[in-house]
Write a protein that binds this DNA or RNA. Structure first.
Lengths: 360, 360
DNA sequence: CTTCTTTAGTAACGCGCGTTACTTCGAGCG
DNA sequence: CGCTCGAAGTAACGCGCGTTACTAAAGAAG
């Protein structure tokens, strides 16, 4: 009576449509118990299975093409080996780099990254619907940790469901200061950019700024000031022109600077553009005036948007945002959190390396 | 004796680290059986649960913050609601658009997209390790269908494990002709591009070609010829210059064309660049010669790489590759396959829309 | 020979849930 | 009053696997 199961067990393997080979099948083929198979496949230390049996089991695994069922494993072992990442995959040409970094790092530690889309630019807005749903869906998959990646460096509010598992923010930080975050070191980036210009002999440097209130602008400009101070110089406020963060914006800002100062008479010999798109526009303004890059005017950008920086003529020297590194570090941080280490609310900053090309 | 479980059940909810609220918890809170909860949550048609009880259960769900366990559900129901997509997320600035399209479409049908990276450019090579592993991992998650997306339109060999579940190729096609695939209609794209130029009054059109052997070049050039033929013209082979698929390549090719023919004396009045990067280089060549776009020379591109096309000055008129649409169509196709419809080996072509900007 | 230890393995439970078969109860009907 | 039948709900099995507790056999020690 207790063994009404055997008959059922015999029926199951050939169930229509269900092609999965299970451990039980392997066990039967190898003439052992399912437990033995499980022991062998999970490389249990103190399992006493003879070499011979082990071999037999592994052969059966091969022969049958057994593939473990990740879901069942997760259910039984109470751990999923999955992390989730929420990001706006659309609007962010580089969100993909964060994903790439995270994905690779996850892959290294045999973990899987579930990617959920979040279709809106700002998480602070009222219609967090999509984003909440994304978190919700990921939690339903029982991810062990969450990553939230923003498209540009900023403060965000994270849905409270994020508190149920360890969560790490990438390229943004928690407005409430609770969650650990990973951001680019904008200030250091701004510093190396301007130091590079100084080193090339430029002392009068024009700056095409972004919206001065965003973290990127604040940090990069600070770094710029630091670099100048290091050389005993000061930032001339007249040389800092705000621009829309587009090629057109950069073009106009560059025109302003170039036309304000005649050649020689105080015209800057170098332009620090706070992003590459604006640098792209600046190129046009410079070329239009018959000036050569970098001979007459050096240009340095920020962001390293490959599609722009590597294809401008001359190729643009710029400071790279370390998206891949941030993604990887995010996963690492998550791993240590899920391993039980305490949450450090502190922000981790990642270096922005200078990419030398030909515009300086 | 049979009920040694209750004690265990009481211990479990407060088990350390395990925060999951289960159906059993909800059932207990609502004073019903777990089955009733299941019935209500899955909206069973012919379940006889009174409105009142249903209400009570839903309230308990809310109160406890119950969240279904997707893994367990998949295990029990033998269906996962997951699709997998394998793609090189790295080298492809637009693979992300395919993912986006697929992701959104999947989301619509309440499905989840598992993304696995494949770190190599060519699937035909010897070291398919990564790619095979990606497929393998996805199958371990018991995905119900697979998508494989290539970074550029080409023939691929797909690991045979892909045969275990329905598989659809995106932006590529099966070298063995077995799997259904979704590709851009390069020919129609080439046609509309050139038709646009013809319509603008150009009859002498230079073409900056890609590697003439890839499907993109073949199709686009064919389309070009069709358009010309439609206007009673023929493609002048002297005006077709191959270029490396980069800005530099486009620059050199454009120089060749422009310098070969003096103004007026047979110089083409329009350039059809088979990709946007080359168009970017062509812009430089044209501007260098003091010519204006589009007044002196019109330029039309292909690919619609936003970062380039939308930021060039003037903004580039180009033909878009329908990545998002292909991704979405991929998921739709997969859905019909998993729903049991027969595999149509035929290729589905997606239109490449013309994007009017200011370079024509 | 008995007892203890080690080796080699196995039976059985439970993870959270979908699902089928069954029970219970009250209303309606003859 | 006995019977049927639908409404409302429940017990119990199994999905594939990790894991714990147990057993059976083969030496080793006394």
């Amino acid at each position: 009576m207790a063994n009404s199961t055997p008959t059922a067990a015999e029926a199951t393997p050939s169930a229509p449509g269900h092609r999965g080979v299970t451990m039980a099948d392997v066990a039967k083929a190898a003439g052992v118990s399912r437990t033995a198979v499980s022991f062998v496949l999970s490389n249990r230390e103190n399992a006493s299975i003879s070499e011979e049996t082990k071999h037999r089991i592994l052969e059966a695994v091969q022969a049958l093409g057994y593939r473990p069922n990740a879901g069942a494993r997760a259910l039984a072992s109470q751990r999923s080996d999955w992390y989730g990442i929420v990001t706006e995959i659309v609007t962010a040409p580089f969100a993909v780099d964060i994903i790439k970094g995270a994905q690779d790092q996850a892959w290294l530690s045999r973990r899987f990254l579930l990617i959920a889309p979040s279709d809106q630019a700002d998480a602070v807005g009222p219609n967090q619907g999509m984003e909440d749903a994304a978190f919700e869906k990921l939690l339903e998959q029982r991810v062990e940790g969450l990553l939230y990646a923003a498209t540009f460096h900023r403060a965000v509010h994270v849905p409270k469901s994020a508190n149920e598992v360890p969560t790490v923010l990438i390229n943004c930080f928690d407005a409430d200061g609770k969650l650990p975050s990973i951001v680019p070191d904008e200030r250091a980036g701004g510093r190396v950019a301007v130091e590079r210009l100084l080193q090339a002999g430029h002392s009068r440097i024009g700056v095409i700024n972004l919206d001065p209130n965003i973290p990127a602008a604040i940090g990069r400009l600070d770094g710029c000031r630091e670099a100048l101070a290091g050389a005993g110089l000061e930032l001339d406020p007249d040389l800092v022109v705000p621009g829309y963060a587009t090629a057109d914006g950069g073009y106009e800002a560059a025109c302003q600077i170039l036309d304000k100062y005649p050649a020689g008479a105080g015209r800057p010999t170098a332009l620090f553009c706070l992003n590459d798109r604006m640098a792209m526009g600046a190129y046009d303004a410079i070329k239009e005036r018959g000036l050569a890059i970098p001979q007459d005017i050096a240009v340095i950008g920020f962001d390293n948007q490959e599609l722009i920086a590597a294809y401008l003529r001359p190729k643009l020297t710029t400071v790279a945002l370390p998206f891949e590194e941030m993604g990887a570090l995010g996963v690492q941080t998550l791993a240590s959190l899920t391993a039980g280490q305490p949450i450090t609310a502190h922000q981790q900053m990642v270096d922005c390396p200078l990419l030398e090309r030909y515009s300086v």
